[in-house]
Design a protein around this nucleic acid. Structure first.
Lengths: 234, 234
DNA sequence: GCAGATACAATTATATACAATATTTAATTA
DNA sequence: TAATTAAATATTGTATATAATTGTATCTGC
């Protein structure tokens, strides 16, 4: 049940192009395509029952996102996400989530703090019950709320992108290990530092939170995590 | 003479869409459009003498880049770059350029070091002669070479994007102040740290390099820097 | 004069048609 | 047979046509 709203913006929900974009993106990130696979417009449009136009637009966007490479007059090719990419993204995220927490300390509102408190509170409940979908959903909401509270649309945009990029792997780590409990503990610590207006501590803790997440992934081994999901594509 | 190659990839040079993309992007970044201006497909395609298709594809890409907001079935609107955006980008860059220098220390090749040495050497010459175009060009090359040498395509992609984003403002600071000389000095120090395999120092210096650049911008005042360029659009 | 309905104009969204380019296959020649 | 060229085929690039949506102005009834 991929229930979290993967949409990057309103467009995606209402336009064909948005749906095509999300679909191809999802297929790449979840491993339904292999690296360097050729993405033929006609084939995709036929498979999805639309014309080539929305497919083209989606491919162009995916190119900008870095998930697809387009060679003019030749074709579009999958830029699969490698193990090294995941490592790099986590390190980059560790820096930026730190910065985000720091800025959030300055800009966060009362309402946002309360939202974060509710999230961590609820997380405890679902972790106890091992409701993996809800745990993942809440983890997402914690981070995106924090991104929004930092007061920088630039940083929010960037972190949201990366967060999404490693969505699949994050979902797996949260459910297939004891990571969820630790993560929730770390969330609470970060939130406490923010509430105490200690921006340096908030930065340090948020940074460490991502470093620990990466270490957890590495401990589990990537093979298990980046496995192809046997989705029925019909 | 906007001579530096603004192309993000090969596509841009050969396809209409790429040209349209670069043109609109350039117009937004240089202030030829005002914030929240509506970008009508028909008008742009007519102005540039192409059909609506490549214009649409370009607008979709610019949406992903964050420079344009698209409201479904309504229109595309300019997301101008604000003073706060510039500040944020510089702070984000300071973190990431630091990380880049750190990684470069581990992954840089002999040839790349030599390229960087040549760049700083040449810079001295052109700074002496106040050849602003060449100075800017060399500054670009120093940074992009460093981005490439860090061994992470993800980080390279990201930094290249931001570098481009603030291109106009960077060009102005380098030419309208004594910043060029300082910047070159800092480049040399960073390079020296990398050569000495001191990754922590390299990170610190690269970080500081961007912080100083921002302080310089703030000292000059943004108004002067973000001024609309009176390009003749014909 | 105003609230709501309706028709019309403007604009985007998608589909289709056509053109340009690249790739493959087959034929031809040394 | 191997290499080269030419025709056929497939694929992308661009333009145009049609459908759907939104915004606006006008009209109607009160």
């Amino acid at each position: 049940m991929d229930s979290i709203d993967s949409e990057r913006n309103i467009t995606d929900k209402y336009s064909l192009r948005g749906k095509v974009f999300n679909r191809i993106r999802e297929d790449i990130l979840s491993g339904n395509y292999s690296n360097h696979d050729e993405l033929r417009e006609a084939a995709i449009s036929k498979k999805l029952g639309v014309s080539r136009t929305p497919v083209r637009e989606a491919l162009r966007q995916l190119e900008l996102e870095g998930l697809v490479t387009i060679i003019p007059n030749k074709g579009a090719y999958v830029n699969g996400i490698t193990v090294k990419d995941v490592d790099d993204i986590y390190v980059i995220r560790s820096y930026l989530e730190g910065l985000c927490a720091k800025w959030a300390t300055r800009h966060i509102t009362k309402e946002q703090i309360e939202a974060l408190e509710e999230i961590t509170y609820l997380s405890d409940f679902h972790i106890e019950k091992e409701h993996w979908d809800q745990i993942f959903e809440l983890d997402n909401r914690f981070h995106t709320t924090l991104y929004h509270s930092c007061g920088s649309s630039i940083l929010e945009h960037l972190l949201t992108d990366y967060h999404h990029y490693v969505e699949r792997i994050r979902r797996n780590t949260l459910s297939e290990s004891g990571r969820a409990k630790d993560a929730c503990r770390e969330h609470k610590d970060i939130l406490m530092a923010i509430k105490n207006k200690d921006e340096d501590l908030a930065e340090e803790l948020a940074n460490k939170h991502i470093v620990l997440a990466l270490e957890n992934i590495q401990k589990q081994g990537y093979e298990k995590l980046m496995i192809k999901k046997p989705e029925n594509l019909k």
